[in-house]
Design a binder for these strands. Structure first.
Ligand SMILES: [Mn+2]
Ligand SMILES: [Mn+2]
Ligand SMILES: [Zn+2]
Ligand SMILES: [Zn+2]
Lengths: 150, 150
DNA sequence: TTTTTATTGAGATTCATTCGCTATAGTACT
DNA sequence: AGTACTATAGCGAATGAATCTCAATAAAAA
């Protein structure tokens, strides 16, 4: 399997763009982040490490990473986008706790069938799906129950 | 079944807010819109009818309608939110054409099972889910095929 | 090297959304 | 009806994420 850097370099060559240290540094940082991130968090994390990249460069690099399948937009919340790297991970969806924000990832063997069914029923050629489930995690569920009882 | 106006009035009383002609006019307009809408479109539609409400009032009213289950956010795209009224409609998800933007609504008998499975597996109390499927509609699919052949 | 031109950083700009202010108008209680 | 209380409306200003501008820089190709 190609490294994410290799994937990006191939993409850069294909699109006749240029390899730059900024883009590759941002990419490396993204693949060091465990979990979801936003532009501001990524920027601050780089800044703390003494890496000098501008927010504009991050905003300009993200669409490239997304375009070549390394990163995806996860959700728009708190007024801005949140992302995650996906290269090397199996496709998954998110179960989010409405109370504490904890995110549980899960895989769905079934949604493939749904896609096929939709393709047949409506004549669409399905490209992707995005499922987000929300609820209360075990801890917050318990807390809610106790609050309700009193 | 209560009317959407009645639902809203009950909610207003419960939360000890005030009935105002603006809020009720905005609500009425929303339930006259077939399909999805955004704040700007709603505002212009009201303006064209000679109704004088400010955008700020729309922005302030929407969270109330969402809170009492009359309206929901559909998706964030093109830099802003899109909404739809849901009261009186069965729960549905969206199949969107990536090329022309056409939206096909569909119901999912199955996702209930998925919710139960997730509840069991992770101990979550599921509150809602949001599934968005993307692809090419029949017309755009055909157009893509023809372009590829030539 | 030299040339070409994509990319960068910093600041300006855009645009959706929110906020602050004051006048107004719902609501409740005489 | 009249009065008091205060939530809400409208307006313009403020906010903040994302994009754009532009001069300086540095990849890539020759
Ligand atoms: Mn994830
Ligand atoms: Mn819909
Ligand atoms: Zn939780
Ligand atoms: Zn289409």
């Amino acid at each position: 399997m190609k490294s994410e850097l290799q994937v990006f370099q191939d993409y850069i060559r294909l699109r006749e763009l240029r390899r730059t240290p900024e883009r590759e540094r941002i990419l490396r940082e993204i693949f060091e982040i465990h979990g979801h991130f936003d532009v501001d968090g990524l920027y601050l994390q780089l800044k703390q490490k003494g890496v000098k990249v501008s927010k504009a460069s991050i905003y300009r690099a993200l669409p490239l990473f997304i375009d070549c399948g390394l990163v995806r937009e996860v959700e728009f919340s708190q007024g801005h986008w949140h992302y995650e790297h996906i290269y090397g991970h199996s496709h998954h969806n998110h179960l989010r706790c409405l109370s504490c924000g904890e995110i549980q990832e899960f895989e769905n063997l079934f949604l493939h069938c749904l896609e096929e069914q939709l393709a047949k029923e409506y004549g669409y050629r399905i490209k992707s799906h995005h499922l987000q489930v929300e609820g209360l995690c075990p801890a917050c569920r318990q807390r809610e129950d106790e609050a309700g009882r009193s």
